[in-house]
Amino acid sequence: MKLPRRLALLGALSLLAGCALLKTISAEVRSFGNWPEGRAAGSYAFERLPSQQQPLSRAAEWEALAAPALAKAGFKPVAPGAQPDVIVALGVRVSATATSPWDDPLWSRWNAPLYHWRFGLPPHRHPLFIERSYEREVGVLLRDRTSGQPLFEARASSEGATPGGDELIGGLFEAALRDFPKAQPQPHRVQVLLP
């Protein structure tokens, strides 16, 4: 194979690898519980808390995002009119934190008054210097339908410069259930390739 062809092939492979990295999230996961030895995943139904039954709730969207992760863990939706084996409760939280380089209490020692004059706003109020970070977290609780006993709980979280979106939330649900049925209470990293 000639050198230009090899370089073109190498470039294409590098581009594909770069695209895969952009679609990969790293989540911190913790899971708890005692899933009964030998018990199959079985069928499930979602349970909504009273706050998730309000008109502006996104519970139905979260359920749609969690369904593929539940399927990968071996669960299937309950058939209409049948009783599920487990009840699934979901939670999603996205919180933003705004920070400024001038949040450091020693900033005034480094000529901060010049920045007041130059930008016309106090430095901690200037929009060019406000940095936002987002923490995204999902939680999944699986309870036995008959006894109501919690069997498995998992949480997955990630941080980033954007709130993310539905793909990212779905990826966090997948990360949360990756270890199922094994519980791992210590925080550990899970990589998920987003669709």
Rank of each mutant, 00 (worst) to 15 (best):
L9I: 14
L10V: 12
L10Y: 03
L13Y: 03
L13G: 04
S14E: 02
L15C: 14
G18T: 07
T24W: 00
T24A: 08
I25P: 01
S26N: 11
V29C: 02
F32Q: 13
F32L: 14
G33S: 02
G38P: 06
S43W: 01
S43A: 10
F46W: 13
A60K: 14
W62T: 01
A66F: 10
A66R: 03
A67I: 06
A73I: 10
A79W: 07
A82L: 04
Q83H: 04
D85F: 04
I87H: 01
I87K: 10
A89L: 13
V92W: 15
R93G: 01
V94T: 15
A96E: 14
T99V: 11
T99F: 05
P101T: 09
P105V: 10
N111T: 03
P113Q: 05
L114D: 15
Y115G: 13
R118L: 15
R118S: 05
G120H: 05
L121S: 13
P122S: 11
R125S: 12
R132P: 00
S133F: 07
E137M: 15
E137H: 02
V138T: 03
R143Q: 10
R143A: 12
S147F: 04
P150E: 09
L151F: 08
F152K: 08
R155S: 06
A156I: 08
A156M: 03
S158Y: 00
P163S: 07
P163D: 05
G165L: 02
E174C: 09
A176F: 06
D179S: 15
F180A: 06
P187Q: 09
L193Q: 14
P195T: 11
